[in-house]
Design a protein around this nucleic acid. Structure first.
Lengths: 236, 236
DNA sequence: ACCTGAACACCGTTCAAGT
DNA sequence: ACCTGAACACCGTTCAAGT
């Protein structure tokens, strides 16, 4: 091999080194979202946060959408995947989706982002892969594993949306749960008897206890409805 | 009672009758969303659709947010509540949330709207009231009923988001399910074995069959985990 | 290769003015 | 009471120009 080093001496013209990078941009963008919600993420403000004119960002990124994709990838990487030391699949599944919720509670304003995006970047698929693996190893069939994952994933996203949507609401009170606002309004007891009766209960329930409890309710259904007889070899 | 009629003769000055109304505005706004997605709903375009300047809308509505609230109310009223002729609660619950999904499938671009809003207007609460009533009559306790409703509601919203989110994706293929795009990409089988194996299964599953099936899985879990012993009087 | 600044086609909303 | 038109403070993105 011909050594091609030192073709350029050390005193090369100070070729412009990038002050930015896609990961740095994504990080700053996520910080903007965390601090001020989705509307705070603006190309102009993002440039400002990075000490650069907004239009310079287009050197690194085709459009705003690509930045959102990068954020998505880094978010899913924050999920702390549980260890797989042959514990029961019920426990593993519960822990995995609790970890997913935990990650999003650290970025509550990004919940709508992960909820509304169809396709995640490749780096974001590790949690999904793990979820499918848990069910396959537990003996679920191909379709059973897909179904099981879909129930828990859909529920988790829906729950997180309800839990955090009060943040996106202009008329929000500094309480968790959107339903809190119901109790503060006059609910007509004649037309909405159950809602009036249960509004307070709905507020009092602490999400950190309710969420894993509800996960286990679903997992119980998965065990009795979707899982083949224990002892049977998993169908392929 | 003194008759106060005919104080004004018929030839009153043609006092400007409103050409618009809040319901008419909400209806036109929903149509814009249905046709072109959430970004298509713009005060200027909405005015144009109603044959009026954008700023005239502010005679009827304080801001764009109020229009979104009105849309929310009319959407929930479209849900066809099932008849309550003493059928098993499992059946009623399944039908109610299927009806909810059915309504939103008629307005797929509005899914993100109902998903991200914390507080619904009063007219929108009938389906929630019915859901709570179903569980209470089935013998669920106060907290059990709230929990049961929350699982099914969260799951339904999360499922609908996944089902329709491909519509909001710029890189979408005209297939249902966001996961479709996974299969069209190269999935590395070494790092994501389960996902590669199951991507096709995930696409083939027809949502209209999968959704009620998954509802019944959850309902099965509700029956075994949340419901008190049958025959017990419902605790208040 | 990297960054800038003016410009374009949009937003939601305010405000003074018309009838 | 209802509607208009100009204006303000924003958007994302393009494009020609600088180094």
């Amino acid at each position: 091999m011909v050594q091609q080093r030192a073709v350029e001496p050390d005193d090369t013209p100070p070729r412009a080194r990038p002050r930015l990078s896609r990961p740095a941009i994504a990080e700053a963008a996520l910080k903007l979202i965390d601090d001020g919600g989705m509307p705070a993420l603006t190309m102009r403000r993002l440039g400002q946060a990075l000490g650069v004119e907004a239009m310079s960002l287009y050197e690194y990124v085709a459009n705003k959408d690509e930045i959102l994709e990068d954020i998505l990838g880094s978010l899913f990487n924050e999920v702390e995947l549980p260890d797989q030391n042959d514990r029961p699949w019920e426990e593993l599944a519960c822990e995995l989706f609790c970890a997913f919720r935990c990650m999003l509670l650290a970025h509550p304003h990004a919940v709508t982002l992960v909820a509304s995006r169809a396709v995640q970047p490749l780096e974001a698929l590790a949690p999904i892969e793990m979820s499918l693996g848990i069910f396959r190893r537990a003996g679920f069939g191909r379709q059973g594993a897909v179904d099981a994952h879909r129930v828990l994933q859909s529920f988790t996203i829906g729950y997180l949306l309800a839990e955090t949507s009060v943040l996106n609401d202009p008329t929000a009170v500094p309480n968790s749960w959107g339903t809190a606002a119901y109790a503060l309004r006059e609910l007509p007891a004649d037309t909405l008897p159950h809602l009036s009766e249960l509004a307070q209960v709905a507020i009092d329930r602490v999400a950190d206890e309710q969420f894993p409890a509800l996960l286990m309710v679903i997992i119980s259904g998965l065990r009795t409805e979707l899982r083949p007889e224990p002892g049977t070899a998993s169908p392929t």
